[in-house]
Design a protein around this nucleic acid. Sequence first.
DNA 1: AATCATTAGACAACCGATTGCATAAATAAA
DNA 2: TTTATTTATGCAATCGGTTGTCTAATGATT
Lengths: 328, 328
Amino acid sequence: MATIHDVAKIAGVNSSTVSRVINGKIKVLEETREKIYAAMKQLDYHPNSAARNLANGRSNAIGIAVDVSNEDAFSNIFFNNSLFAIERIAQEKGYNLILTNVAMQTGNSIEKLILEQKVDGLIIPPSVIDPSLINIIDEFPCVVLGQPKKNYNSLNWVDIDNVQGSKMAVKHLYKQGYSRIAYMCSKKYTSFSKHRVKGYKQALENLQPLVYTTDGTLIHAKQQAESVILSKEHPDAFICNDNITAFGVLKALKEAGLNCPNDVGIVAFDNYPLSEFTEPQLTSIDIDTSILGQQAAELLFKHIEYQNPNQHIILESTLIERESSKRQ
Amino acid sequence: MATIHDVAKIAGVNSSTVSRVINGKIKVLEETREKIYAAMKQLDYHPNSAARNLANGRSNAIGIAVDVSNEDAFSNIFFNNSLFAIERIAQEKGYNLILTNVAMQTGNSIEKLILEQKVDGLIIPPSVIDPSLINIIDEFPCVVLGQPKKNYNSLNWVDIDNVQGSKMAVKHLYKQGYSRIAYMCSKKYTSFSKHRVKGYKQALENLQPLVYTTDGTLIHAKQQAESVILSKEHPDAFICNDNITAFGVLKALKEAGLNCPNDVGIVAFDNYPLSEFTEPQLTSIDIDTSILGQQAAELLFKHIEYQNPNQHIILESTLIERESSKRQ
DNA sequence: AATCATTAGACAACCGATTGCATAAATAAA
DNA sequence: TTTATTTATGCAATCGGTTGTCTAATGATT
């Protein structure tokens, strides 16, 4: 591969001049510029990124960490619109995107990405944050995709307003005449679920909360629902942590001979195309994960290019009323 | 950040010795080794990856290109198990994974990844291959995720046996007593669809093929199906290019008052958890995209670490019989 | 015409690793 | 004891860019 020195030789100038021309850091005679471009073309020159990174101390890459032990893409918010949005913005900025899954770690690669200077910034899920990582991150450009625990609140983060989402769901169900509202939570440990359950409990006010948890699979959601609706005083509405869970609950209701929405109502987080397909169609809390990713990326680049924005962004979610919560 | 020279100074040795100790390329006195490790620890030393890449001419990264203009993660095979599997293997090998979406390209970044030496190998979809890329790839380690066009057949690739999948579907439907089998194709231009349609046509033998295409959305699949089943001589079975399409067709059937499987049978590609949830449960052609990704990654590393394997791998798919193709 | 300012580009150090070669010390062989 | 061999480590070049500083040439100022 041709180097900058080869180009310089052919153009009859010094490599420093070539470098400055490439990076637009100098005024040169039109004639010189043309000779350089001609040489670059002739040699099909492309700057070596490692050399460039070494010289200017940047990697021109951002890292995105995900934490998924389970290959089921449906249940993983990162692997949908967020990731696309982040990739798009990185590309616009001329950055590469390095993807790493911390769940199947052989070393702690987030720390490696920072310490070996492989990335100029990071987008991470709340689940990977711990004191030792915090220690390393310090002022390193970083955005958390989801609200971290309170003691890590000085980090930049972007999140859906999950608390508000749950509250909307509860209020909506109340208004529709449901009174014994349960929460079917699909994944105990994510920050999303935690906040949703929190909002649910707050909105219930003095009533007794009913929270059930599943391992995230449709089957398990169905089983959980089955065991719940057997009792006489079963809930007359479920808020489901995601679409898959809702499908499981719906199926359980059908098999138990209960009508949704008349006997039991459902509101579900996520708003996949499939939620319009079910019978009844699912009332959903729509979270725009594409904007989530976009905001995270923009925050990150603010930090990289300018300074730590020290910002928290909470995105509103909207309730889309469909059939599953509308008694006839 | 501490450099190798800082470590060397503190350990009282030359940086070359530190380098060789780190890379295990030399026998040193136990005493020297200990001094070096102590210094590394003291300074919290981590080698700079750019310098390392520059010096040894490798990037320790592989690139994965995807070609998705549409954010709908459901319809995109890359973003599910394949990507996970690839990431896992890359991590095991100590490589980083650089993700790029060629569909929203501001430059042609696959070529950049190669020419600027940002990656040591590439996994690409068939859609991005063209003569100019071929020209650059030459003997560059590369694996295509999906079978490319015949004239690019010298590339390494991994694919599902889509032709066989369709054939299985047709034969299965015949055996179940269906005779007018249509193919509902969701995305015209992917190599997957092409081979599936091909297999479908071959298995039909002399019968007239009926191929309908959609834009990939559930809604459009439903509309297409509606327009088809109005005619008196409508198909009595559909092979659907993916689960989403099948859901659309199923919905159209229900609304038209046609019973599935008794009036119209369905076999669908993909085997998402949801296919067990529908009523009737979907007979599916299960393709293991996790193994697809794994094989692709393994092939790529063979090329990177050893030599061009010049290999094509075709993975069998299996038909999972459920209710949607079983007349009662 | 003499002086100063500006401009275009060259020189060389530097980024932080790796590695071929050289050398000193230690050990073995004669 | 001298020479040959092995072992442990140092020296310095190199990978391919970037950038601070210097110089020569050109132009402006008085």
